[in-house]
Amino acid sequence: MIRLKNVVGTYTTVRGTVDALDDVTTDFQTGNIIGIAGESGCGKSTLLKLLYGNIEYPLAMSKGMIDYGMKGPDGRDITTENISEHWFKKISYIPQSSMSSLNPVVKIRKQFLDFQDFRSRKEIDETLEKVVAFLRELDLTPEVLDAYPHQLSGGMRQRVMVALGTFFQPDIILADEPTTALDVVVQKGILLLLAELQRRMKNTMFLVTHDMGVHYQLTHKMVIMYAAKIVETGDSEEIFSRPRHPYTKMLIESLPRIGDAKKLQGVEGKPPSLWDELRGCRFAPRCSRAKAECRERCPELAAVGNGHSVACLYPES
């Protein structure tokens, strides 16, 4: 279990500070693919940065704590302070842009070896053997090791990124829009690969994407975010079949389905600016069901049964 307790992620800007993640308390069950969805600026990336422990000015975790429930090889608990020592061994990251994430003037081989220091030629060869075996499992020919990034196709490069991120079999994988820049056929291949690897390694994978269809097909759990808050969490099946938060419902209704007769509904309006003083429910101005109370009282994330939680005063039934 990965527990977030009252986590606040604050950015310092020239205009002052702004909380891009505002008092988030939630538990993530390990061994699942956890989808994170929401509009741009809702705090998805901030949540990933805090989880990864990549906290650098102007971002700071100004309140709260994250309990990873893991121990490092030295037996100490992994915390936000020391998690960077375990990057890619215990927690890894798959970026969205494979072209700009690989060193353009160095062969892929070297980029598989620069995680660690080697004491002998033999150690390097042993690691390389493991890399080759692992690449074969991922349907990649070992020849990619001798290629420069620009010699590979977009799909191959993203597979290399997946291979880099999963090589050490980390307990947690953060995938930040891993298929955004790819065409749908290649996208499908990468997503199936991720799902397959997760099933085999039984690790926890956080998947951020705007594509609700991907979430529906791949994830076990869903986290819906809106304006720096988590508004709904639960099993994906449950969330997609019985969304309780009006925002989630609108997101799902914007998904096209085969046989749709009526025109699709978009989500009207835009999220509130985090600079403004936010009172009451942050979704209330766009919510068709909002009552007077919604504009006064901020709803907390509360369990509604079946491991399903929602932050709404008047959830959908």
């Binding site: 020592e85 375990h86 990057w87 970026p95 690989l102 353009p104 995680f115 880099l164």
Partner: peptide, 20 residues
């Protein structure tokens, strides 16, 4: 550049990031 950020998040040592 993105590849320097990625190398840092990979846990590559700063000296190695500087040179390689």
């Amino acid at each position: 550049e993105g590849y320097v950020l990625y190398a840092r998040l990979k846990g590559v040592k700063p000296r190695r990031i500087m040179y390689n």
